[in-house]
Nucleic acid binder design. Structure first.
Lengths: 126, 126, 126, 126
DNA sequence: GTGGTCTAGACCACC
DNA sequence: GTGGTCTAGACCACA
């Protein structure tokens, strides 16, 4: 897997895991890949994966059983929505809207772009 | 002026200048504050301002007259819209929509949030 | 290493790296010395090296792996030739020819001077 | 008149005057335009012209009659050829040849490029 | 006065 | 360990 430049890798990995949980690909109380396996799959330094896991653990999204591995917490979905959606709506969206405003993109256009985006994603999945 | 921590200062200065140009506060062929003056006003090191200016010059948004100062290029508005709007629509929006989708925010909700945001801004201006 | 006074140091470093790539001393996908090491070798401030690296990155000649270092891009040779040869032939040569013309140096004489130069270089290498 | 970026303006003005002398447009013992006139014609700061004149005076190419103006020295042509041609052949050409060598341009190609250049100039003059 | 470059040294996030 | 950014302060050429 390749990682885009502007976000730190460990952050992208955290996001990836959260998304998979929200999308139902990972389930609560599932065990995550070991740090080494995950690092191998993603072609990334184990330290970097470790950092993602630690971060998610701090957020209460996963937890650790010593010597066994990392597991997705019960209630992880709720917690992710709590944390991420809030920062998304409260912090990210305003900055996005501010830019859209400057560039003269109307609310209707934004809606249309979003609809188009969703269509694009659907087609890819087929 | 205060700077946000997550973006580099020189980047925020560049953005600030671009926005002022788009908003019509700075005009094409206007002279920018000298590096030292701008640095003084923003309470920032001259090197940091220099970096912003150099960056904008590379982008063709401002240009330099030897020994006189930096000036806003003719066509700067167009160029900024070209560069920024393109990266906004092509790179920023998709990631925003992807998140919105995951968090279950519909196109109509996005539109409403944007409308609300614009109202908020208008009220502030009064 | 010693630097010529009329060109900026960071520029000379960039040129040095490009030449080494063209001459086959550095190869595509090789890792460059770290900023600090290079600075130490050249007896120069790390910031100065950083500037060279950033410049070459902007030109697409080298790229960065986060936390690991700078690497020579695949296709760097082509890209350098593209950039440098073009500016050499289109911008530098005309001014040279213009001067040669004024000083009454004929095309044949230029050719002879060049041949002599190449012989001189060959002898040095022995 | 517009001045290209990479050389200092006063230097470009000096070169311009020297060329006009070599090309026979200005003659020895001719009076040069006053600093102010020249500055007006070139749309440049008088200080900058002054600097060119001083420079040329230091080189012995022009001389000053107090209160009257600057005049081209007798022997200016010889002196210019002495100074400029020497630095051209001894310093500029080697660096040019070095680059040509790196870019794989042969002596014959250089000659052809030079011949082409001369043809181009001739056509412009018609 | 203007920009441009460089040094020294610091701090940070990241791998 | 890596790069990236920033400050403070200096020096230079140029207009």
């Amino acid at each position: 897997m390749e990682f885009n430049s502007n976000k730190s890798i460990y952050n992208q990995i955290s996001d990836l895991i959260c998304e998979n949980i929200l999308l139902g690909k990972f389930h609560e109380e599932d065990r995550l890949d070991s740090v080494r396996d995950m690092a191998g799959n993603l072609e990334v330094n184990p330290n970097t994966v470790m950092r993602s896991y630690s971060f998610l653990q701090d957020e209460g999204i996963i937890y650790n059983k010593r010597g066994i591995g990392y597991f997705i917490s019960t209630g992880a979905v709720t917690r992710i929505l709590d944390i991420k959606k809030r920062t998304f709506v409260d912090e990210e969206l305003p900055s996005v809207f501010r830019q859209a405003d400057i560039y003269g993109i109307s609310p209707d256009e934004i809606k249309v772009l979003y609809v188009d985006y969703k269509k694009g994603v659907e087609n890819e999945e087929k």
